[in-house]
Deep mutational scan, measured.
Amino acid sequence: NNDALSPAIRRLLAEHNLDASAIKGTGVGGRLTREDVEKWLAKA
């Protein structure tokens, strides 16, 4: 759900042209964290 994304995470996803639904969030309530996105980028 994009409503649950912080502005910083939205920007990070946009910079790398990523789809938030492709990344499993580990934050509160399954929210994406910066670490989630960075780990996903490291694997890609």
Results as ranks from 00 to 15, higher is better:
21 S>K: 11
15 E>M: 11
9 I>S: 02
34 R>Q: 14
1 N>V: 14
12 L>W: 06
2 N>E: 14
31 R>D: 05
44 A>M: 15
42 A>C: 07
4 A>L: 14
41 L>R: 00
41 L>K: 01
33 T>R: 05
24 K>R: 11
43 K>N: 14
26 T>Q: 04
41 L>H: 07
39 K>Y: 13
33 T>L: 07
19 D>F: 04
23 I>R: 02
32 L>I: 15
17 N>W: 07
30 G>H: 03
10 R>D: 06
31 R>K: 14
4 A>E: 14
43 K>Y: 11
20 A>H: 08
26 T>K: 03
12 L>I: 12
23 I>E: 01
24 K>L: 11
24 K>A: 11
39 K>M: 11
33 T>Y: 00
44 A>N: 13
30 G>Q: 04
6 S>Q: 06
20 A>V: 13
8 A>I: 11
11 R>H: 13
36 D>P: 00
13 L>F: 05
37 V>D: 00
18 L>V: 12
25 G>Y: 00
18 L>S: 04
24 K>Y: 05
6 S>L: 07
37 V>M: 04
43 K>M: 15
18 L>H: 03
27 G>I: 03
5 L>M: 10
43 K>A: 15
38 E>K: 09
33 T>A: 01
14 A>P: 00
34 R>E: 13
3 D>F: 00
22 A>F: 12
42 A>Y: 07
17 N>D: 09
23 I>G: 02
38 E>F: 14
30 G>R: 03
31 R>V: 13
2 N>G: 13
38 E>Y: 14
3 D>L: 07
5 L>G: 04
37 V>F: 06
38 E>N: 06
26 T>D: 03
11 R>K: 13
25 G>D: 02
7 P>Y: 01
41 L>D: 01
27 G>W: 01
19 D>Y: 03
38 E>W: 13
4 A>N: 14
13 L>C: 04
1 N>D: 14
15 E>V: 08
11 R>Y: 05
40 W>K: 10
9 I>H: 05
33 T>C: 03
10 R>S: 08
33 T>D: 01
9 I>N: 03
11 R>E: 11
17 N>Y: 08
14 A>L: 09
14 A>F: 09
12 L>F: 06
16 H>N: 05
33 T>Q: 04
34 R>S: 10
14 A>Y: 09
20 A>Y: 08
33 T>I: 04
28 V>A: 12
12 L>Q: 05
29 G>P: 02
21 S>D: 12
17 N>I: 05
17 N>K: 08
40 W>S: 15
17 N>R: 07
31 R>W: 05
20 A>P: 14
4 A>H: 15
6 S>D: 15
1 N>G: 13
12 L>D: 03
7 P>K: 12
9 I>A: 04
32 L>W: 06
11 R>G: 07
36 D>Y: 01
26 T>A: 04
35 E>R: 08
39 K>F: 12
9 I>W: 06
15 E>T: 07
36 D>A: 01
32 L>R: 02
8 A>V: 12
31 R>G: 06
